[in-house]
Design a protein around this nucleic acid. Structure first.
Lengths: 97, 97
DNA sequence: AGGCATTCTTTCCGACATGGAAAGCAACGA
DNA sequence: TCGTTGCTTTCCATGTCGGAAAGAATGCCT
């Protein structure tokens, strides 16, 4: 009864990106700053990892001026969610889920 | 009701080592060659990863002459099993298990 | 004993990933 | 125009990874 085909994803696997995807998978959208603080990494590092995820088509970046401040929100794309689910399924398979 | 305290382990996380630990977690012992073939990596690469796991105290290497051939068998130590379980628990936490 | 095959182990090497620090940049308010 | 906020990009030092090939240990065969 596997919902998705397990598939290891090297873009998602590294710790910081796995955490980012894990956070985004649980919500519709999350602010850059919130992700940065939750994961506990610097602006520059998060920015670089988000860029990887964006280039893979897994994350969508939305820049909005809110409360007269620049707010960048992140969200998984449909494709990103599918890739994350598949990777999680593969992790479960590997680890004997 | 978490059985083990989730704890991310950088020694275990990389794909080849996660696979090796996943295999060993399911059995008492497994031959070097069987692990190598199941994981699908070369002798030298497996040897190097096993060395990392050994140095972390996670894997025990047993060299035996069997059927007049050198046979190296691998097994998780108790400590290795605990670390693996903790890492898997952390992965589940991160991925929204 | 010498040579050869089997089984890993170690070394060498080039490629690539990663994070910290700092400089850059765009937007906005004072 | 200047300073602040909120990321982004660049620079750099370090680390990891795997492939290829040389090494080493052990046993078999003649």
């Amino acid at each position: 009864m596997t919902a998705v085909a397990p598939r290891f994803d090297a873009v998602i696997h590294p710790p910081p990106r796995l955490q980012v995807c894990g956070l985004l998978a649980a919500v519709d959208t999350m602010d850059f700053a919130a992700v940065r603080d939750t994961v506990g990494i610097s602006d520059s590092v998060l920015s670089k990892h988000v860029k990887q995820l964006e280039e893979a088509g897994y994350v969508r970046v939305h820049k909005v001026t809110r409360a007269s401040r620049l707010r960048t929100s992140l969200a998984l794309t449909r494709h990103g969610r599918a890739a994350f689910d598949a990777h999680v399924a593969e992790l479960r398979r590997i680890t004997g889920g």
